[in-house]
Each structure stands twice: as C-alpha cells, then as structure tokens.
Amino acid sequence: MTAAATLKAWTGAALAAPVVWLASIVNVPLKFWQRATGTGGMAAFFLAPNMAIFGIFVLVPMIINFFYSATSGTAYFLQDRTYVGLEQYQRLLDCGNYLDTATCHEDLFWKAVHNTGLFVVVQVALMTVVSMATALILNREIVGRSFWRAVFFFPVLLSPVVTGLIWRWILQRQGLLNLIVHDLGGEPHNWLTDRFWAFTAAVSVSVWAHMGFYTLILLAGLQAIPRDLYEAAEMDGTKPARVFWRITLPLLMPNLLVVIVLTLIRAVQIFDEVYVLTGGGPGTSTLYITQYIYEIGFASLLRNPGLASAASILMGLVLVVLTLVQLQVGRRGERKGARE
C-alpha cells in the first residue's frame, strides 16, 4: 500500500470513527425495538421525526385554525375570543345566488372565489399546454438545448415577489412595455387598470414564472418513453400527430396528471406574484381567494381572523376534493393504460 493510500485509509477511518461509535450506541436499543415491533415498528421509528415536525407545523396549526373559525372577535388569543359555532361559515355562505356576488353578504369572498375559478381554468389549461409544448421542443435535438432548458427554468428560481415587481415595472403606465409601444408610434395603454389586461397579465406572469418546473417533469417523462416505439412508428410511416396522440400522450399521462394536479393546487393558492403585480385590482378583478384570506385576516383595517380562518378551511376543503378527484382520474387512467 502506498503512503497516500495509507493516509487516505487512516483519514477515512478517523472520520468514520465518531459515526461508528454513535451507531454502536444506537444499535442496542434499535435491535431491541426491531425485535419487539418488527419491520413496521422500524418504519414508524424512522418516520417519527418527520411526522412530529409535520404535526407541529402543519397538523396542529390546522386544528387551531379550525377552532378559530368557530370564534369571533378582534383578539388573537383563542381564550379571549367568543365561541360562535358555525356563524362565520354561515356569513360566508349567506348568498341569494352564488353566481351573483351582489346577493352575497360577503361579496368580496365570492368575488375572490369566482376570480379564482376563472384563473384556475385558464391558467391550468395554459400552463399544461405551454409546458407540454416546451418539453416537446426541448426534447428534440435542437442547437443549444442545455442553454434553452436553463433559460426556461430560470424564472422558477426567482422569488415570486421579484417576479411580480419585474412585471409590474414592465406593465405599469410608465413601464417598459408602454415605452416600447410609444417608440413604435403606438398609443400607450394602462395595462394594469384594464380588467382584461390585468387578468391576462396575472395568468401570463404566473405561467412564465412556474412553467420551467412543470416542463422539467414532462421532460423527464418524455425521456423515459422507450425510443424503439418511435422507431417502430417511423418505420410504419406514422404521421407525427398520430405518434403524439397514440404514443407520446398516453405514455406521458402519469407525468401529465402530476403536472395538472400540482398546477391546479398552485393555481388555487395563487397569491404572491399577483398581489405584487396588480394588488388584486383593478377593482377586485384579480382578487384571489388567498389574498382575500390574507387581507381579512391580517392586512385590512376591517380584519376578522375568525372569518379568515373559516374561508381558509373552505378553501382547504375544495383543495382536498380537487386532489381526490384528480387522483381518482389518475388511477383510472393508469388502470386503463395497464389493460391496454
């Protein structure tokens, strides 16, 4: 053995020594635990720290939030608040016609629900199509493929607040876009005070900011599809569109469903970049449900923590239902795929 190899071995042993020592200490109770509880107990042992953190930071706040939603008052401590049962929920759901916010007691809540619904439909569809198209392009042998992948992923690394600010500077009345429009001889437009354009901006910025992540998921799915299927289709002279519909799309379905579920959940929770970009305006046309909860819980001078908690629980229920539906659809798709 050379001197260098000896030194390397000694260094390795020295570094490993504390770990070996610790393992020897832990080993005794672990062996006892495994004998007593079997492999199920070992799984519980290793999962326990994670579950404890999840419990403290997610489960317990959720339960506390539920209690908050059954109270009223301006105090923040539960013991200082008045128990009102389901009154906050009744107030939120008090509506003559759920499609007409003017008939609702909490009209802003229902405005936010309607706006979120529209945003989810448009954004999820656009995000899925754009991510898919980008993934298909980036999966081809194009010049500078790695560069383009990095370019599309870069916005994901930005903080949502930074994303919102950048686009606000571009779209505001004295922003970059209007400067370009003006220089080209056009009439500058107040993009962020126009309901249509503010909504379009909110959707587009959100897609721009997150599509890199979903593209990556789809790209991984595309690369997992066996090449021989495409080669066989090529030999049969199958048209590219048919290849996409009959090979790519069915085999990409599990990844696509993941993308749709994640996009859907993220779209329902949309807040930060749109809050910075439009502030929920013009009027309340880009006021989404999370902003409503934030405003009514913390920011507004009309703050009402009980109402905000009730709204967040309703939103949570919707998210749970949506996720279950999506998972059910996914399972059916997988079963169908397996049968075929």
């Binding site: 802003l108 505001q172 009345r173 004295q174 107040n190 962020l192 005070t193 503010a198 439009t278 502030g279 929920g280 305006g281 013009p282 009027g283 309340t284 880009t286 006021l287 902003q291 405003e295 920011a299 507004s300 001078l301 009309l302």
Partner: peptide, 24 residues
C-alpha cells in the same frame, strides 16, 4: 389619475407622491 385607486383591491394603501414628483 386612475392608477392610484383602481389598481388595487381592499383597503391597500397607495400614495400618488411619485406621480407628483415625476411631474405627471
């Protein structure tokens, strides 16, 4: 100036000082 009041929801505070400072 429409921006100041219309381009936000709720009771969010928006000052128009920058528009005055920029002689708009």
């Amino acid at each position: 100036l429409k921006d100041t009041w219309v381009s936000a929801a709720g009771s969010t505070y928006r000052a128009a000082a920058d528009d005055f400072i920029n002689a708009q």
